[in-house]
Structure formats: C-alpha cells, structure tokens
Simulated scan of single mutants.
Amino acid sequence: MRISTGQMFHQNTSSILQKQTATNKILEQLASGKKINTAGDDPVAAIGIDNLKQKNSLVDQFVKNIDYATNHLSVTESKIGSVETLITTMREQLQRGANGSLSQNERQMIAEEMKQSLEELLSIANSRDESGNYLFAGTQSNTLPFEFDSNGEMIYSGNSDVRKSIVASGVTMGTHVPGDTVFMNAPNPLGDYGVNYLASQQGDFDIHSAKITNAGAHVEDTYTFNFVDNAGVLELQVADSTGTIVTTVPNFDPTAPVTVNGIEVKMSGNPVAGDSFTMEPKSSVSIFDSFKDAIALLEDPNAAATQQNSSKLAQLLNDIDSGQNQVSLARGIAGNSLKALESFSTNHAEEQIVNNSALSLLEDLDYAEAITEFEKQQLALNAVSSVFGKVGSLSLFDYI
C-alpha cells in the first residue's frame, strides 16, 4: 500500500497535535488540582459536580441564616435573663417595703429604689440590636415598643409578629421574641376579671379567682360588690355599671363561691358591712403595670394602716409571679429556638461533609496517577515527534 507524502505529513501532524492536547489537558489538571475542569471532560460527572455545588451554596446560606438567628436569639435570651433577675429583686423590694413596721420615709426610699429598677426594666424592654432595630418590637423594629402614657399605663406599640429566618429547606425559625409575649401577656392569676380594692376596706379578705364559668350567661361589665348589714346579718349586693343590683346573697358565707352573670368569684377572709370592691374584665396582666401599682402602694401614706394594703399586696404579688412566669416562658422560647438552631447547624455541617466527600470523588485529581499519565503522554509525544522528524527528512536521492 502506497502512502503519499501528504498523507504521511497529515497523519504525523494529527498524532503530534493529539499528544500535545492530551499533555496540555493533564497540565491543566495538575495546575487546578481538578480532573474535571469543563463539562466536556466528563459530562455526566460535571452535572453531578454542579448539583453538589448548588447544594453546598444553599447550605452555606442556611448556615449564615442560622448564625444571624443565633446571634439575635442569644442577645434576646440574655436580655430576658436580666429581666428575670430584675423582677426577683423588685419583688423582694416590694415585700420589704410592705412591712407594717416601716415608717413612711423608709417605704418611700424603697419606692424610689423600685422606680430606678422600673426604669432599668423599661430600658431593657426598649433594647436595640447591632443594626439599631428594637429587639422586642415584633416586626415593627423601627418603632419604640414600650412607653407609659399620660395616665401612667404601659403602652406596647410593637406587634406580635416574629421576624423569621430560613434555616433549612421548608423550615423557618423566629430570630427574636415579641415584646408583648415577654412583658404584657401574663395570664391574670384571678382568671378573667381584675379586682380593685377600695381604701375604705375594713375587713380582712382576698379574692382568689374571678372566672367566667358560663359563657352563655356572661355579661361583660364592671361590677361593684357591696357588703351590707341586713338586720344584723351580712349580705352581699352586686351591682352593674349602671348601679342596678344584679345579684343579692343573703347571709353571706365567704367560703362559698358567688356567681354573677356567668362569673364565679371565690374569696376568703372576713369582710364586714361597709366593705366594697369592684371587678372589671382583665384577662392578662403586664409586669410594668404590676410594679407601677406596687410603687403607688408604697408611696400611699394611708395604705399601710388599712386592710386594703394586705389585700392589694397579695394580689400584686400574684400578678408579679404571673408576670415572672411569663418572662421565664419567653426565655424558654428563646432557649428552645437556640437549641433547635444548634441541631440544624450540626445537620448542615454533616451534610457539607457528605457533599464535599462526593465532590472530592468526582473532581479531585489523583496527582500520582496524573503525573504518571503526563510522563506517558510526554514520552509518546517525544517519540512521535522524533519519528516524524526522521521520516520527514528521508529522500530518495539518499539511496541513489
């Protein structure tokens, strides 16, 4: 078979170019440390590599979100912990100030201490994060969440919504706890109504509960309970906000519950004729209002000498305990979220290890194998080039 000079040159040139291409490819692999640098190197493996990198990018974003949520929840949990400590201190101050043996000046000094503590409590409730957003304002992070109005009542201007962060596929978690959950929505320890004891109280009695037990018969209103003397027998008359008598209990027994328009009221102690108290709807208590009322009680120069002091003190302590339990519950929410975030973070770290291991198998270069292959290709290229050089220099005139 005859081979033309053109064919010989074409075949040898093609062979040299192929060897050079193969050598250059290995050089690229050695430089990058990857055996697949383009989709053309291995289309199937390239798709797998691309999918794994996308997964890792998504996991990286989840990890960033978790770090953000963890930082904010850690600050929130710490602030709530400070609130718990402060509430305990203020409760002790109230109990110390309620001691009947103290002078009014001493009670006033304790009241001043509690005012400072209340200001500190308000400062914590209005804390900001590193971006200047209010921690306890819900999603209205640019709005001052807590302030007292002109009547001395605490107003919450935030909302109950929670800023959330995506921490895993289909999973979102709150990055903070709304302020009303922490400071405002403690359950009323009495139930559904709050009690106002009057300064004229002479008997020693307390209201233990005021709950709606018959929703169908319930009429929401402000009720006044009057104890009257009826021919030497104590009688209870309950009037609504218009002054109309809605319930009369002759021969009143303080150990027996009283039912008024679907509301069951339980009390203990010994009221006397002339005593009176009012009830109004109240499903929750605010730790701020509880301490505000406690300070007012200590500052009242006449409260220490009345039975009202004992009854109101018992109610305030119950309200404060309910508020502290609510704060502890909010701290538990933050703590449980932090624990869940830690679990998600661990899962993501394990997922990244698996993904990176699979990526390594698909794209990482075996340097020993690559160097061996490079030397083989280099040897082959040298051989082809040498043969081409010798064959290309042959001439028929050399044999004549």
Rank of each mutant, 00 (worst) to 15 (best):
Q315E: 11
K55W: 05
S360Q: 05
L341H: 01
A111I: 06
G100N: 06
L144R: 09
D319I: 03
G33V: 08
A294V: 03
L313F: 10
S169Q: 13
Q54H: 07
Q324E: 10
T242S: 13
S328I: 08
S15M: 13
P187V: 03
A314L: 07
N214S: 10
V167H: 04
H218F: 08
S322F: 02
Y134I: 12
V171K: 10
A358M: 15
V75R: 07
E235T: 15
R128G: 01
S131D: 01
S241E: 06
F136Q: 06
G323W: 06
D364H: 05
T372W: 03
Q61Y: 05
S160V: 05
G132P: 04
F288E: 08
R96Q: 13
I36R: 02
G170N: 05
V272N: 11
N151T: 07
D206A: 12
T306I: 09
V182L: 06
I245A: 09
I87Q: 08
A231C: 01
N356H: 08
I110H: 12
M173E: 04
G335N: 01
S169P: 00
N185E: 09
T244N: 15
A22V: 03
L317N: 13
Q352E: 04
A256H: 00
Q95P: 00
T85Q: 02
T143S: 04
V354Y: 15
Y197N: 08
Q116D: 08
P257T: 00
A98N: 12
I155N: 15
Q95D: 11
A383G: 10
E264H: 02
P254Y: 00
V171R: 09
K64T: 13
V387A: 12
A370P: 10
G48A: 13
E220Q: 11
N71A: 11
N355S: 08
S360N: 11
N188P: 08
D275Q: 10
A334K: 01
G174P: 13
S337Y: 02
A137R: 05
F9H: 10
V387G: 04
L52C: 06
F397C: 00
T70H: 01
A22E: 13
Y68P: 02
N105G: 09
S268P: 02
A256W: 01
I49F: 05
R163D: 12
E77I: 02
N270M: 15
H348W: 03
I371Y: 12
Q93Y: 11
I212C: 07
G81Y: 04
G6S: 14
T85F: 04
G40R: 14
V182Y: 14
V384Y: 06
E112S: 15
D398I: 00
M267Q: 13
S127C: 00
I245K: 12
A168W: 07
T76Q: 02
Q201I: 09
N309Y: 11
E120L: 07
S209I: 05
P257Q: 00
T278Q: 15
V238T: 02
L313W: 05
N71G: 09
N347L: 09
Q140C: 01
R91I: 06
S131C: 01
S385E: 06
D253H: 11
Q352S: 15
T242Q: 07
D206V: 15
A137E: 02
N325D: 14
I287N: 10
Q140I: 01
T13R: 14
E112G: 06
L17I: 12
T247I: 03
